[in-house]
């Protein structure tokens, strides 16, 4: 739809700008709060313009640890979160690619049965099966490990389903041409299917990275060792620390840090992300 009417353009921009403000305002306040000291943050009204303590707060949060904490900064928690999110994203993508490949390209007994079993797990997110899953992870000795943090979250019906749809749009002749060229199943998968699903993989990576990064409940359960804490858990813990008033300037600084990696992923992968969700031509 291409129209050139000034009023419509004006309206469209107004709506978009309002939308941006609604999304950006809380982030702005987070940034502002992260740049003041504790004293200013305890006075009313709260500031809406940045203060001068930004780098000081950053240094405290990253390196010195927190009041109420134990003297260690949160930088290693950023690393933990990063490892967890990447493992979940790559794990989900690999498993889903492989299961979709099996379901679409191989004729084995109960093929559709397996497909529906995978599909049904859509109704069983980790929150629903949390107790049995915890027991399994505990029995396997995976508490306080990256495996324990990620493996139970890796199976993904959504991604399997999406890759299945992508593979179904790839013409059969391509598989046949590859067979004549002498490519076996694995070669076909690696040389043809994966490159052809490139944009879909990228789009899914963005979504799954954010899903993994934002995990709260599960990490809270399986980690008792502080070395394994993630940044999102840490925000929650900081609000509960001791009996004292939360140190809002430091909490907000931590929040700001925890928002940055997902934002970076979205920004850098934006083009592929949009292509992957909209492109239909193969």
């Amino acid at each position: 739809m291409i129209e050139n009417r000034p009023f419509l353009t004006f309206m469209a921009h107004t709506v978009l700008i309002l939308g941006v403000i609604v999304v950006a305002f809380p982030l702005w306040l987070t940034f502002v709060a992260a740049s003041h000291d504790a004293v200013r943050m305890s006075e009313l009204p709260l500031p809406i313009w940045p203060g001068t303590h930004f780098f000081e707060n950053l240094d405290v949060v990253l390196n010195k640890g927190l009041w109420g904490g134990d003297g260690v900064g949160v930088s290693y928690m950023l690393v933990n979160s990063m490892i967890m999110a990447l493992m979940i994203a790559f794990g989900k993508i690999s498993i889903s690619l492989l299961s979709a490949f099996a379901i679409v390209y191989f004729r084995f007994p109960f093929r559709m049965g397996f497909f529906w079993m995978i599909f049904i797990t859509l109704m069983l997110p980790v929150e629903v099966r949390i107790l049995p899953t915890f027991e399994v992870v505990a029995n396997l000795g995976m508490l306080d490990t990256y495996w324990g943090l990620t493996v139970p979250l890796i199976a993904s019906a959504t991604a399997t389903f999406m890759f299945r749809q992508v593979f179904l749009t790839i013409p059969d002749e391509l598989l046949e041409a590859a067979r004549i060229d002498g490519a076996g199943p694995i070669r076909f998968f690696i040389d043809i299917l994966i490159p052809m699903s490139r944009t879909n993989i990228a789009a899914l990576f963005v979504i799954l990275f954010i899903y993994g990064w934002n995990q709260y409940l599960w990490p809270l359960l399986v980690t008792t060792d502080q070395d394994m804490y993630t940044i999102v858990m840490q925000i929650g813990r900081m609000l509960e620390a001791g009996e004292s008033v939360p140190q809002w300037h430091l909490v907000m600084m931590t929040t700001l840090l925890s928002v940055l990696p997902p934002v970076a992923v979205v920004v850098f992968m934006q083009r592929l992300f949009v292509q992957g969700l909209t492109e239909t031509e193969k």
Binding site: P171, E173, A177, R179, I180, D181, G182, R198
Partner: peptide, 20 residues
């Protein structure tokens, strides 16, 4: 025998070129 072992080559109606 597998297609690749039959010493044949095939040209398809919609070309079946690898798009990437």
């Amino acid at each position: 025998l597998e297609p690749s072992k039959r010493d044949i080559a095939m040209v398809f109606q919609n070309y079946a070129l690898y798009p990437h």
